[in-house]
Design a protein around this nucleic acid. Structure first.
Lengths: 252, 252
DNA sequence: CGGGTTCTTGACTAGTTTCAAGCAAAGTGG
DNA sequence: CCACTTTGCTTGAAACTAGTCAAGAACCCG
């Protein structure tokens, strides 16, 4: 279910050969930084789809960066209601909150098979001491994460079901695009309607009916776990707002 | 409307005499850290209630810490809908996102007359280089801010209007308590119902009716801009959940 | 080829917004 | 100091949005 490689064995990706470094949206490391990151990385973890590798209410000893796959952060209420807070894609960091605070206030689940870089909590302060530029990047990532949630909060609070759904699809598509996962305007879409409903704060039935309206608008296509952006401007018009443009970003 | 003191004149609070440092919930600086913070602080700003001192869509040159008063972060949609994202109280930092990114994606408005410490953006990297413990604290503050929004997202997505309203009041009261603003279970409450509505993602009318139900439960009292927590356990029962306990926290 | 999960749909119900109007308190200017 | 305006609060009714219930269809996995 959750498998660590141990440093010497398994498919371990050395930082010099990190596939993320080739992505144009990501900034390049200096040789020094690369050395620090290499030293910071302690292991690689494989998580199967559906497994929660971070649990609300527990402390976590590690910080992770997604190397491949989709994950999502979520919170559960006592009676089983679930709210998905955000999604994590390759180059996104998860677990920072739980590393800094005493315990996690959310859980993280793998949406697809997931590969993670593992950074031990106790080396984080060392990184801050010895490589301020990377410390700066970690803060940058935390601030960006907050920005994404802010936008989601606006959706839940002030956008109609239709606007909100269209906006979420724009958001997910843009992020998949940034992560280089889009081919011919199409991405592998690992979500069930329940995932979207729990993200949008809507019931499953209402989500289904809202999606149907979007599909009828011909702006998008979604079938067989594939999502196609057919008419982006039309979707933007329905959402009433566009997602903010991506800028070059750091990662660790 | 917005008045800076300039370093030598006006009511300028030297960091050694910062009133926040006396608060038990805040961790103490080492002498070194105090020196850095003192050097980092460039000015003090007074903002009158109702003024937005940070605007979405603009770059901001400074980072602020609230010294006294309430502020709130919010986003506006084109047609005037407003979503309040979070509130800032003394010892909270605002403007970090705008300092790291190219431009702000939210605005910040003073809810009461506000005093702010001003930290120039261009000294931030210097702080990261020279004082990693404070860099760590800034990251901590960013992570905590995210935690607060996460909780708010759960409210908007998955809690009923009554639960959500009760929870917000618990949240605001707890934070006011942490900031030492509570006397005899009572705080000066600077909100209009419109503020609460825009925080809760509800219409003004429905917010009014929901508050009426809460007042009728006798768990709280709210009159003449004073809020009294009469029966906290009862309010927790209505909210269906309690706010997470406060832990000692840093500030800058 | 079952058996579970996911999707779809219609009917009904509950929750929420909108509209409209009136009131109270506070602030403004002659 | 008193009309006048503005802002915030309150209430009821009507319209709309979204949730719940229920059942069947489609899909996926072993």
């Amino acid at each position: 279910m959750i498998v660590g490689n141990g440093r010497p064995n398994g498919q371990y990706t050395p930082c010099e050969m990190c596939p993320l470094r080739k992505r144009p949206s990501l900034r390049e490391f200096t040789p020094d930084e690369l050395g620090f990151v290499k030293e910071f990385k302690a292991d690689e973890l494989h998580v199967e789809a559906g497994a929660s590798f971070l649990q609300q209410g527990t402390a976590n000893q590690h910080l992770y960066t997604v190397l491949s796959g989709w994950a999502f952060r979520y919170k559960m209420l006592d009676d089983g209601r679930r709210q998905i807070l955000n999604y994590a894609l390759p180059a996104d960091m998860v677990g920072l909150q739980g590393t800094l605070m005493h315990e996690m206030e959310h859980s993280v689940e793998a949406l697809t098979p997931l590969t993670l870089c593992v950074f031990p909590r106790n080396k984080l302060y060392d990184l801050y001491s010895r490589c301020p530029s990377l410390a700066f990047d970690i803060t940058w990532l935390a601030a960006r994460e907050e920005q994404l949630i802010d936008e989601q909060l606006v959706s839940l609070g002030r956008r109609s079901a239709l606007e909100r759904t269209a906006f979420l699809l724009l958001h997910l598509f843009a992020r998949a695009e940034e992560a280089g996962m889009v081919k011919n305007g199409t991405i592998a879409f690992p979500f069930t309607q329940q995932h979207l409903a729990d993200t949008l704060g809507m019931s499953l039935v209402h989500t289904n009916k809202t999606l149907k309206r979007l599909l009828q608008s011909k702006a998008i296509r979604w079938k067989d776990r594939l999502f196609e952006m057919v008419n982006r401007p039309a979707l933007v018009a329905i959402a009433g707002d566009d997602v903010s443009p991506r800028t070059p970003r750091p990662f660790i």
